[in-house]
Design a protein around this nucleic acid. Structure first.
Length: 587
RNA sequence: GCACUUGUAGCUCAAUUGGAUAGAGCACCUGACUACGGAUCAGGAGGUUAGGGGUUCGACUCCCUUCAAGUGCACCA
């Protein structure tokens, strides 16, 4: 629609002798209830036109009508100039823009972006919260790649610390040599089981100590189990061979389990970082900060940064005993990542409970003048709540990721069978189909919502398969494929003279796709893609319902509609891919 | 207590970043060519955009204020 903007700039210059920038013009889709397809908001022009909004709109509209062959008419409602574009324009769009393979393939923009997501702890299996994280991270990566970025997907695995020692210790004490092989349990679930056991036994000890007269705080500190776990962590840091071996064994169980879950979720990574490698980093940055005077040292030797001028607090960056804290590590890891990839942007997909941490981290890196600091972004997302309240791994009130995937597949199976739509599928194809539909429903459900908002998930109510859902869009695609399979389609350009409103609407929404990708990339928002592809499916369905394709008036019209359908199917497929969702040929 | 985020139809979400009469889906009601695939389409009903004030041609959007919910304020990660 740039040509409208350019012509409007020209119109304003010609009519009112005023220079305006094309970017300042408010161009929007015309609302359904009015005639036209694009609308220029002309209120802002009244400042220099010195005329009423209506008159100003009419002036500009007349100019555009004279100037542009593709403009077939206009009307003015208040300060809104609604422009109708000729059928020939839309037909041309279909053949020159949408149908070519180059459609919505962005030129590489020469920028590199890193997306860090997932970042699990290795002491328990993934749950619904991680699912949101993984789907968001993967989808944002796909969107950025489609917008022209070179994308590096990374996973920073939190593989060390007291929480893993808890699982290790409980396994040592109560595990009786259980392994994933001996129990048939997924490795991450087995390790998670011992994390829960630790917590149960630990609580028992706390109660005993309290009964013996200790306060809650004392009991928590003095319980033998927690002391053992702490000493195990110290042994790990000291490099104790037995501890390290156990740690490696159990971590490997977890990794095998995670790999399976990642595969089911359809997410992947280009690079793994491990905290066991990075937890000591960052101390040289502390030195650097002290030299530059960004940090200061207190009498006890601890190092701090004063961010009160930035509306934040004083923050510790190094303990008095010289060991690192979370912030130290993250500064170091940020440096490591930058050294490895020299990316222009770095996105952290992390829950909103860490908003403050990342605000501080980014402020520090900027103050230190670090390369790439300007490109840091925290993609913060809300928690997933259950009707019963928060999910807590230790108390077992979580929606497990693997269970969830299985449930979704089961629901997809039930629904599909109830509709009797499995004729002609082999058993393998059925399983594949249930997976595609179930995951389509789940992914769409989680991604259509603005990441910032917290999400309520009710496991009692199955995720919908009708209406504003993934399967609705998948169904639209399957139906398009079905029609296309019943006719021979030519590649030739068809010379239809005029098109129906339903056809024009489909073309109009298709032309928006490249711009939608850019907007979604700028806002790191899969929800924008999700809502777009839903609109597209709806507009297509309306066309499909109103106009017969295979029984069209004549062969030309039939071919035109087939090509329009083919283009719609491709864009649906592509858009859904950006969400990490597959679309089936049949369902 | 302080800081950040959120609050839109009974429920789940939109609203082109300040534009038109605030739109969809679910649920509820009514209809659709003897199905190019009905997981569809058309229609009805449902709103003081949490409350109040302000800014302007124009506010769900920006500012102030009150309320509600969530999260964060460790020499934990």
């Amino acid at each position: 629609m740039n040509f409208i903007l350019e012509a409007t700039v020209k119109a304003v210059k010609h009519l009112y002798n005023t220079d305006i920038a094309a970017a300042d013009i408010n161009l929007q889709e015309t609302r359904k209830e009015f005639e036209g397809q694009v609308t220029v908001v002309t209120f802002p022009f009244t400042k220099f036109s010195k005329k009423s909004p209506e008159q100003t709109g009419a002036d500009v509209g007349t100019f555009l009508l004279d100037e542009l062959v593709d403009v077939s008419g206009f009307n003015v409602v208040k300060g809104f100039l609604n422009i109708s574009l000729a059928d020939s324009y839309w037909i041309k769009q279909l053949y020159t823009e949408i149908l070519p393979d180059s459609f919505a393939v962005a030129e590489p923009n020469g920028q590199k972006v890193m997306v860090e997501y997932s970042s699990p702890n290795t002491n328990k299996p993934l749950h619904l919260g991680h699912v949101r994280n993984n789907l968001l991270g993967f989808s944002v990566s796909e969107i950025l790649a489609a917008a022209g970025y070179e994308v590096v997907k990374t996973n920073l695995v939190n593989d060390r610390g007291i929480h893993i020692c808890k699982s290790m210790l409980a396994w040592q004490k109560f595990g009786e040599g259980e392994t994933p092989e001996s129990t048939g349990m997924k490795g991450d679930h087995l390790v998670g089981k011992y994390y829960v056991i630790f917590d149960k036994e630990y609580k028992k000890q706390i109660e005993e100590l309290k009964a013996a007269g200790q306060t809650e705080d004392e009991a928590k500190k003095n319980a033998p189990l927690i002391k053992e776990a702490q000493s195990m962590l110290q042994q790990w840091e000291a490099g104790n061979e037995a501890v390290i071996t156990l740690w490696k064994t159990m971590n490997n169980w977890v990794y095998t389990g995670f790999a399976e879950t990642y595969k089911k979720l359809g997410v992947s990574f280009d690079k793994f970082y491990y905290e066991s490698d990075t937890y000591l980093l960052g101390k040289d940055i502390v030195d650097e900060g002290l030299e530059k005077g960004v940090f200061f040292k207190k009498d006890d030797g601890s190092v701090w940064i004063d961010l009160t001028a930035d509306g934040l607090d004083e923050k510790l960056v190094l303990r008095s005993d010289g060991t690192s804290v979370y912030m130290t590590q993250d500064m170091g890891t940020a440096q490591l990542k930058y050294n490895d990839y020299h990316m222009d942007k770095s996105i952290y997909v992390v829950g909103n409970e860490q908003d403050y941490h990342f605000k501080v981290l980014f402020t520090i890196l900027n103050k230190l003048g670090k390369d790439g600091a300007a490109g840091l972004y925290h993609l913060s997302y809300g928690m997933v709540d259950l009707p019963s309240g928060k999910m807590k791994s230790r108390e077992g009130t979580v929606v497990d990721a693997d269970d969830l995937v299985n449930d979704m597949e089961q629901t997809a199976k039930d629904q599909t069978e109830a509709m009797g739509k499995v004729d002609g599928f082999t058993d393998d194809e059925k399983l594949q189909l249930y997976h595609t539909i179930g995951m389509g429903a789940l992914k769409y459900f989680l991604l259509k919502v603005d990441p910032k908002k917290r999400l309520l998930f009710n496991p009692e109510e199955s995720v919908d398969f009708q209406g504003h859902t993934g399967p609705f869009i998948q169904y639209t695609h399957a139906r398009i494929r079905s029609v296309l399979s019943r006719a021979k389609i030519t590649n030739a350009e068809i010379t239809v003279k005029e098109i129906a409103a339903e056809e024009r609407d489909v073309i109009a929404i298709l032309t928006q796709f490249p711009a939608i990708i850019q907007t979604a990339a700028e806002g790191y928002s899969p929800a924008i893609i999700a809502n777009y592809v839903y609109e597209l499916a709806k507009v297509y369905n309306k066309f499909y319902h109103e106009k017969s394709i295979l029984q069209a008036e004549d062969e030309e019209v039939k071919q035109f509609r087939l090509q329009l359908s083919s283009a719609s199917g491709k864009v649906i497929n592509k858009a859904m891919k950006l969400l990490g969702i597959e679309v089936p040929e049949r369902m």
